[in-house]
Design a protein around this nucleic acid. Structure first.
Lengths: 119, 119
DNA sequence: TAAGTGTACTAATAAGAATAATACAGTTAA
DNA sequence: TTAACTGTATTATTCTTATTAGTACACTTA
């Protein structure tokens, strides 16, 4: 299910995170489906359970999954994930806009930029 | 001219950078005015010249200053600095907009966001 | 030509990130 | 109730990276 690449310079927990993100986005792991337990996966990959736990903790902070002590970790719904992504991007968007407006760029210029985009 | 804070957890070269950014923004160092030489400043602060050199190198990459081998380092013009800042922010702005458009947010919604801002 | 300037390269060191070891607490099912 | 599972917190160790230092080079100016 999860593939670690020895030559990948990124830390293991990052590789684990990316693997699960892909599996969830691709629908291989469905919303509310149980993920492998930290110990089970750690054993399969021959690494320390805490490394998996770190990956899960960060995935939870990014609201890709949710964890229930004693029960397990589960994939979040794709709608939830999409909403969170939009929320975060919107925050960056308005923040950047504010900084531009603050140093003298006009609203009209920003709006023109938007209108000029593809899609 | 430059103040280093022993309790500041940031590396020395970062503190040096921030100090100069402020001095330039505040107009204490005027456009094209010569900055202290790497050795002179290093001696005053009792640190290695290479540490100053790193600060200067990064300030140059950010186009806050420009350096001429054998002559010295000089503050960039405030107009240049402002233009660079706008260029970078615009890049972030359009990039973020594109990602939002890509996952289904409409141009109209983004434009409304801009129009709703203060200033 | 001597004393100044920035810069490049390498080595040493310090700081932080990544992982491991261990213990705790909740859940479930026999 | 208890045994075997689950996630989580804390601390320690290891390892990588970032930071700083040492040294030499090349250019400019007086």
């Amino acid at each position: 299910m999860i593939q670690l690449n020895q030559r990948d310079p990124r830390p293991i927990y990052e590789q684990v995170k990316e693997n699960f993100k892909n599996l969830i986005f691709q629908g291989v792991i469905r919303p509310d489906e149980k993920m492998p337990s930290v110990r089970e996966l750690a054993q399969k990959l021959s690494i320390n359970p805490n490394t998996i736990q770190r990956a899960y903790r960060e995935l939870e902070q990014e609201e890709m999954i949710y964890s229930i002590p004693g029960k397990g970790s589960f994939a979040a719904s794709v709608h939830m994930i999409r909403d969170n992504e939009i929320r975060d991007l919107m925050h960056t968007f308005t923040q950047t806009a504010d900084r531009l407006l603050g140093i003298g760029v006009s609203k009209e210029e920003l709006i023109r930029k938007i209108e000029g985009r593809q899609i």
